[in-house]
Amino acid sequence: MISWWLSKRHHLNSSINSFFEQIVQNLSSFFFEAGRTVLFFSQSIKLLFTKPSRFKDLLIHMEFVGNQSVLIILLTGAFTGLALSYQIYIGFNLVNATNLVGPTVALGIFKELAPVLTGLIVAARAGGAMAAQLGTMRVSEQIDALEVMGVNPLQYLVAPRLMAAILTMPLLCGVFDAVAIYSAELLCVNLLGLDSAIFWNKIQMWTDTDAINEGLIKAGIFGMTFSAICTKTGFYTKGGAKGVGDATNKGVVYSMVMIIVLNFFTSNLIRLYHSIMESL
């Protein structure tokens, strides 16, 4: 009986140990990869300011990340505005506070939903394409070809993509903000019978440019995040078609998770910054 108990206890102890070892291993590999991504980003972005100029490439990538995402952002923004305002209207109607539907929708969209949803959508669309393009170039030796031609692939391929995402994400977030809020107004005023003047007046009363700026800053940070993750996973792709698929999948999934995690921390950091500034 005692020997049975001792063997079970030993088994349990080793299971617990291996569980914690696995957690530590995963955490250390996460921080290692995060560190490598930051290094990759900092090495690449500074190359954008070295000769030769990649301004034309930057514009091409901005058109790809920004212009080609507008339609999908318009659609997402419109339906997010409609759905959110309807749910908030139902809730606030119960307590006769429908006057506050406008500002609640506006704050939710400006500060949280617009940057996060824009980040997720553009990460899936443009980030996935970045990882797949660079991964294909890696496995078909196009990146090696660039290097042997004396062209720095980080400067030629990575830096313009990073900067394009950082610059266009706030613009797309602004488009999302505008479309979502006008869609909310369309529903609340034209279908649910709220007063248009009250709707806009309450929004002006309860929101300020800081709320919009918070979302735009966050969108820029998310652009930086997904472009760094996706270009890195693509750039260091190994293997053939499977390697490209894995890199794309990894890039998009990591980007999406990081956008949601970073959203929490950046919201709190921005709030902390505002409270410090107010106390000064």
Binding site: T136, E141, Q142, A145, G150
Partner: peptide, 18 residues
């Protein structure tokens, strides 16, 4: 980089920019 400019490489699958 200057040295690489003096070298030309033909890759196994040509490695053309697609």
């Amino acid at each position: 980089i200057k040295l690489r400019i003096k070298m030309g490489v033909l890759f196994q699958h040509a490695a053309l920019f697609d």
